[in-house]
């Protein structure tokens, strides 16, 4: 039996998290055996299928074409996964908003209890996953015949995007269920690295006091080549858009360097960043919980420290 990975894309290019899910699949194949196949379901997504065929470790790409897959609607993608699942021991997707939306729907249709957000593979049926905002790590064993799994991207290295030479096989589309329609999207435009894959992340919290003050963080980010994130408090206050949120129910990041600016460090925020290699906290409250996880803590007024930091990076 082989392992199927559901590819996320916008009909033009693969999303980076797919490569982390492929690595989890490679680890699984080490226990369970079998090939790794990538499913690309989209509209005019031939370029994505070709890109997917280059990913190291992938033996076959299944390409399903149809307008019903153009926007990744769960009601249309899930039946395709259900149709294909019989040939696979495991079906994986990255734990992105796409994977979280689509895979449980397929799991229920298959009568499978999905395993969400795994951070390690112990064997063909046993996995480690964070629970309670990462305050506990559960080792769980699935008894379902097919295992549906979402993968925490930060816990697995990205597979090489090139070097593979998989065959691309066309599979029949499953049609439009007509249950829902895509109307439009408002995507945050940024020249900076993507938050979940950036090597350096600088995040602001309630202490930033306004959205305008995030300009200070942008200047530092530009010098470091960093992505910008935020705590829930900063997003709720309207300082920055929702897609900046790092935490238990937002994005999970694990960069080489995470700078927490004006963030107190609620457990829900720590859940999204405590696997970062080096954590820096700048906060004027020396009792702030963020200092308990920070490798380097600076008790200071961020409105002085951040411009100073920006200036110091020139030196």
């Amino acid at each position: 039996m082989s392992i199927l990975v559901i590819a996320e894309h916008e009909n033009a290019a693969l999303k980076p998290a797919v490569l982390n899910a492929v690595t989890a699949a490679v680890e699984l194949a080490g226990h369970a055996g079998g090939e790794i196949h990538l499913l690309v379901a989209g509209e005019n997504a031939g370029a994505v299928a070709s890109e997917a065929a280059q990913v190291a470790g992938v033996a076959k790409v299944l390409h399903a074409e149809g307008a019903e897959y153009a926007h990744g609607l769960a009601e249309n993608v899930a039946p395709l996964i259900v149709k294909l699942a019989a040939d696979y021991s495991h079906v994986l997707a990255a734990a992105t908003t796409f994977g979280k939306n689509v895979l449980p729907r397929a799991a229920a249709l298959l009568d499978v209890q999905q395993i969400s957000d795994i951070s390690a593979v112990e064997s063909a049926d046993t996995f480690v996953r964070p629970i309670y905002a990462g305050n506990a790590m559960a080792t769980v064993r699935s008894t379902d015949s097919v295992k549906l799994i979402t993968v925490r991207g930060t816990a697995f290295d990205a597979a090489a995007a090139e070097g593979g030479s998989a065959a691309v096989e066309t599979v029949d589309a499953t049609g439009d269920t007509g249950l829902s329609r895509f109307i439009g999207q408002e995507l945050t435009k940024s020249e900076r690295p993507e938050l979940t894959t950036a090597g350096i992340v600088i995040s602001g919290g309630r202490g930033m006091q306004s959205g305008d003050n995030f300009a200070m963080l942008e200047k530092v980010a530009d010098k470091l080549g960093a992505a910008i994130g935020a705590s829930r408090a900063a997003v709720d206050a309207g300082f920055v858009p929702n897609d900046y949120q790092v935490g238990q129910t937002g994005k999970v990041v694990a960069p080489d360097l995470y700078l927490a600016i004006g963030i107190s460090g609620a457990i829900q925020h720590l859940a999204g960043m405590k696997d970062s290699k080096v954590i820096v906290a700048i906060n004027k409250d020396e009792e702030a919980p963020i200092f308990q996880v920070a490798d380097y803590g600076l008790v200071a007024d961020l409105f002085q420290a951040v411009p100073e930091l920006e200036a110091a990076l020139d030196g």
Partner: peptide, 13 residues
Amino acid sequence: REVDGGLENINLN
């Protein structure tokens, strides 16, 4: 909907 890239608008039956 709040999605990874920002916001998405959909219409449901």
